[in-house]
Design a binder for these strands. Structure first.
Lengths: 252, 252
DNA sequence: CGATTCGTTGACATGCTTCAAACTTCGTGG
DNA sequence: CCACGAAGTTTGAAGCATGTCAACGAATCG
């Protein structure tokens, strides 16, 4: 059979997956047809070519065979945040599942060869699709945290944190404008990479701005629009919406 | 059948998974026996009880039904880094797969009810086990990045970054002591949440320490032990192994 | 009702960013 | 092959956001 020949050829020429206990293609694809497809799906990218871009519809993930790749996302302010660098043997592109829009971009850092794993060919072996979707969501959440820690100042982190909580409460049918924090200031600081004192001071300042009302663990969001603006604002961004000095101008 | 009754009871009393398109238990577990097991696996935890601890062997993941949970990990220096807060409906504990040691801990923030999903019951539906293992590894990598961004200073981040690269090259059969960076200083800074200038300065300083030899993108690690020590060192840790002032003492 | 944990506020120290400028390397076209 | 410009890297000086240290008030718990 031609497919058989192709298939076995495909297996022997590549040892990149050995540390994983053998070719991922053989592990994940049952039919020789699918394996042949995979064989054909090998691709060479030149330096600085995008493997995929944020917003594109995802239909596969990748194994890097040679070269190197960086994945990144872009903040609302046009700033780039690198999420990781991939070396030969690494699997990437699993932070988005079939049919979803890519949540990050990937670009080659040099001439690169990679193996495409189209979701469609995974067939029965990808039964846990729902689980994969859940893990992808978790990764996206992690990536947001990374972005927050790397690119946002204290104001931005606290605002993002509160906005995130509000959204999650809303999506569960609770009030997004008033809720009780179940965690201590210590925990919040430890999550956001800030000192407890900074958390406390920032919350106080937000209250002075009229953005929030805070009483110990009770939070009420008074001006969600401004909160969002602060959350999306980069450190030295041009518009200091509600930053320290601004407070002096419009205390409530 | 008793199991049937149990099973349907189990389905009707819980609406936490509705936004996911229905009970995860029904989606992931095929046999009524497994579903009953799941039903029995519901658990109430009081405030500040651990759901699992780092190092324990993982045999399940969880869906939070009510209450809230925080997940975290502890640095080599005993510092805590919070990785996330979970609200009702959230799935957690998927950063470790069956049989592995937990890579993080989870503790309740208040009285909490949760649903256990033992890996063993997933049966055929979890075929993509290999894929899950890969996504779990990716998550662990992300968590390391979070820890780095939140808890380490510039020296620690650069050192961790280089050590990570070295380890990955070693595991692939390349030299861990001498390699070429495929990414620009800009990219490194963008990954580590540092300004380009800081990256450059830090590398220069490491060279002055005798830890590295750097020439543009070529890196040679001369003192891997010290590099590791810097990587693991927290910001204001007692031992300033190779920090700014230290350089003055022992320039090479 | 003490004891402990949690939250807030102030003063000060400092590590990193920002701004600026020079140098090197690389790619491109004359 | 060299000239030229763009991009990447390095180094210096100065400002500032955040961490650290310290003290106090408030709430919680046994």
């Amino acid at each position: 059979m031609l497919t058989q020949v192709q298939s076995s050829h495909f297996v022997h020429e590549c040892h990149i997956c050995e540390p994983r206990g053998g070719c991922l293609g053989l592990q994940l694809l049952d039919s020789p047809e699918a394996q042949q497809q995979l064989s054909n799906a090998k691709k060479i990218n030149r330096k600085s070519e995008h493997v995929y871009r944020e917003g594109e519809e995802a239909d596969c993930f990748y194994v890097l065979r040679s070269g190197s790749v960086k994945s990144y996302l872009v903040t609302e302010d046009g700033e780039e945040q690198v999420l990781g660098f991939y070396l030969p043997g690494d699997v990437f592109g699993m932070d988005t599942t079939e049919g979803q829009q890519r949540m990050s971009s990937a670009i080659t850092l040099e001439t690169t060869s990679l193996c495409r794993f189209p979701h469609a060919y995974l067939g029965g072996k990808a039964q846990g699709t729902n689980l994969l979707k859940i893990t992808a969501e978790q990764m996206q959440r992690d990536h947001n945290l990374v972005l927050m820690l790397a690119r946002k100042d204290a104001d931005g982190r606290i605002a993002s944190f509160l906005d995130d909580l509000a959204c999650r409460y809303r999506s569960r049918g609770y009030s997004a404008e008033a809720f009780v924090l179940t965690m201590s200031r210590q925990d919040i600081g430890c999550y956001l990479g800030l000192a407890v004192e900074t958390v406390s001071r920032t919350l106080t300042r937000f209250q002075e701005c009229g953005v929030l009302k805070v009483n110990r663990r009770e939070v009420e969001i008074l001006d969600h629009a401004t909160l969002r603006k602060i959350a999306g604002t980069r450190i030295s961004s041009a518009s200091p919406s509600c930053r320290q000095q601004e407070v002096e101008f419009k205390p409530v």
